[in-house]
Design a protein around this nucleic acid. Structure first.
Lengths: 214, 214
DNA sequence: AGGTCATATGACTTTGAGGTCATGTGGGGT
DNA sequence: ACCCCACATGACCTCAAAGTCATATGACCT
């Protein structure tokens, strides 16, 4: 947790520091991100940084837990609030849509999130899991298990396997959806283009029925 | 490419350097791997290292192209040599089996390979692709396109999407197969346990038919 | 006006990275 | 016996990182 001094800062300055840090972490990941760069672009002195944060990890955790997580929650559609009432594939579809909307509107935050998923052996990941109660990995496993228990899947599906690959699968899918439609995805009022919506349907279809003939 | 002096070294010494480097890269990835550590554990002087290699990247490339790639080729089953004669899912199954055999017998090499897949934006990845003609990514795309052209998939499958997620999907799947059977997978004469073989079949089933009801 | 206390500051320390280079050494040819 | 040349060596260089600390500043209270 950041020190009190950080929260006593005028909001403008606080947000500038956060914004700069996000850019730096998104561009370089955790290890290669530089405190020097952050303080320079924030227009604060190195010493001031350590008045606000205990260390680099402290800042990173704050970005993850208090900025990214808070922002991401805003994108969760109402359908996700009571997951018990909907079937698995509808939930996944909503998850994709809200995730894609979040990613296309907050590409830097998304990149930091992707970094974590790809660095599950990194010490900061361990710390995040112990502080946040692995909110994401458990989330999928619970969803998959529930759906399995309710008989939404075929017989013989390996629940552990599906929940194991889900995070990377989703992250890879988002990558694809965003990368292959950078030029012509017009973010409308709904916040997401029809082209991307079509892709989501194709991905759900793949999950449901695979790629083979029925 | 390493310098001539490296290849003039007695084989024992050369292999020790390679082995040490592999351990270091597998444990820390490229950036955090330390030349100092490598030379210390290899019992050579820092200066000697730079008599053998132009720089860190030179060593890493050598490990990738001349050690890992060469070793991996040994595991490709005969069925992979003429891919035109077999159907997509059989090919994928063989790919998994040879990949898993390789991974379980060469965990460090596998880890380095996984690092690359997860770091496609890293400069060394670019260099690898330009030197090796992106042997892996193209490989999947070609396989998927061929299979599509031969009508092995349902209508409406997004070829680009499937080939985009394939590398990460395979890498994640291998992870799972190896992680969840560390204790009791007896590597027999066939080189791979029945338990893992069963998992492979489940994964292929997932690819073919998804997780939904038929 | 003086004093106090939270905050701001940047020079400084330590650490370890990748990479260099003058010098040492030892086997083979004349 | 000499030299030569390929190779070996580790002290040394530069650079940039994370983190520290003595000192300066300035708003507010008495």
């Amino acid at each position: 947790m950041p020190k009190e001094t950080f929260f006593n800062l005028p909001e403008e300055k606080r947000q500038l520091i956060e914004k700069t840090a996000i850019t730096e972490f998104a561009a370089n990941g955790y290890d290669k991100a530089s405190i020097n760069t952050i303080v320079n672009y924030s227009g604060i002195a190195k010493g001031s940084f350590y008045q606000y944060f205990a260390d680099k990890k402290d800042l990173f955790m704050h970005i993850l837990l208090s900025v990214i997580a808070q922002e991401k929650i805003k994108y969760l559609s109402p359908i996700m609030r009571n997951p018990g009432e909907h079937n698995f594939f509808d939930l996944i579809k909503e998850l994709f849509i809200s995730g894609l909307k979040f990613a296309s509107e907050n590409p830097e935050l998304e990149k930091i999130g992707a970094w974590i998923i790809n660095n599950t052996t990194h010490p900061v990941y361990e710390e995040l899991m112990s502080e946040a109660g692995d909110y994401s990995l458990n989330f999928y496993e619970i969803m998959v298990k529930d759906a399995m228990a309710r008989g939404e899947f075929r017989e013989g599906i390996d629940v552990k396997y599906i929940s194991h690959i889900f995070p990377t699968l989703i992250s890879g899918t988002m990558d694809y959806c965003l990368k292959n439609s950078k030029d012509d995805n017009q973010i409308g009022l709904s916040g997401i283009s029809d082209e991307i919506l079509e892709k989501v349907d194709l991905v759900i279809e793949f999950l449901k029925n695979g790629i083979g003939h029925k």
